[in-house]
Design a binder for these strands. Structure first.
Lengths: 163, 163
DNA sequence: TTTTCATGTAACTTTATATGTTACATGATT
DNA sequence: AATCATGTAACATATAAAGTTACATGAAAA
């Protein structure tokens, strides 16, 4: 299985959207992420349904944040992107007739469930505002102490991110 | 990504091997698992390297357990099958230049690391003997109270498991 | 009102990875 | 020497995520 990058990608996109008040097009977001605008629209559609972002068609259109960063947790974004499968390992078959396999499944499922609960709890404790603050710390550490005066271009170390 | 079933599959195989003192061929194990003998050999090779099983060529050959069930934990089997990736989600890129992506990766990795630690701890607490005991309970509950007198055929509810 | 820009979405293609298959070599037992 | 079983490389298939193409819809600008 390829690893799912929707949560990671959307968090990245949401934080970049917070840099500006203007609507950002799928085209620009796709350039930042090194992907295709259609992929952005496809995944952002889920965020829009949850009210995390808003979209506008036509000239000057694009995407805007629907809620302040401090109100959005990683868990909400995870749900908004469709709650993709968390684990890369699983049972060979659900509801097996074989009692041995039932016992094996129960043991693995129990451990996975605990891990999933912990993971979702952690995701629920982290807001986008915390990620933005961590970004600010990293930028300051890299020598951009006046970040608030230079909120955007100076923070682009990857050319593909230029807006 | 397809989900990895090597841990689940090998646990299943190991418990079935405990049913008998005789060597069990890859052919029989493959029939039980609904897979191919070469797949069995390929994955069992890892278990053999860790001493969890032994193999014998030629007539009467096949696979035998290398250690008592009580001494083997799920964590050991997981390691023996090559420590396959646990999570189906991940970062879009490791070592990104973008500080935003670095912050996102750090947050996700932190949560995943905690979940992984918990999962591995749980795997380390469960032995194959515990799974075998759970199997016995399930068999008894299904109306096989004299399981020890009828250790094998009566526990096969899936025809593909007949040895 | 026509052109342009941007989203919305279905259908299809590509890519990555786990699993399955074929073929043949090696070694042990009969 | 024939048979049985593992050992393993090479190749094929299946599945799911991501990427792409094509075209429709709606909004702003010319």
């Amino acid at each position: 299985m390829k690893r799912d990058g929707k949560l990671s990608g959307m968090l990245h996109v949401l934080l970049h959207m917070a840099d500006t008040d203007k609507a950002v097009t799928s085209e620009r977001l796709a350039q930042m992420m090194g992907t295709n605008p259609v992929v952005i629209r496809r995944v952002m559609a889920g965020l829009r349904e949850q009210g995390l972002v808003q979209s506008e068609k036509g000239h000057g259109g694009g995407w805007r944040l629907g809620r302040p960063l401090v109100e959005v947790t990683l868990a909400e974004v995870y749900r908004a992107v469709g709650e993709p499968e968390l684990f890369a390992m699983g049972n060979r078959s659900e509801n097996p007739q074989c009692l041995v396999e039932q016992a094996v499944n129960a043991a693995i499922d129990s451990a996975l469930s605990e891990a999933e609960a912990l993971l979702m709890q952690r995701f629920g404790e982290v807001t986008l505002a915390m990620l933005a603050a961590d970004f600010q710390r990293r930028a300051a550490a890299r020598g951009y102490p006046l970040l608030k005066d230079h909120p955007h271009p100076e923070t682009r170390h990857d050319p593909s991110h230029d807006l």
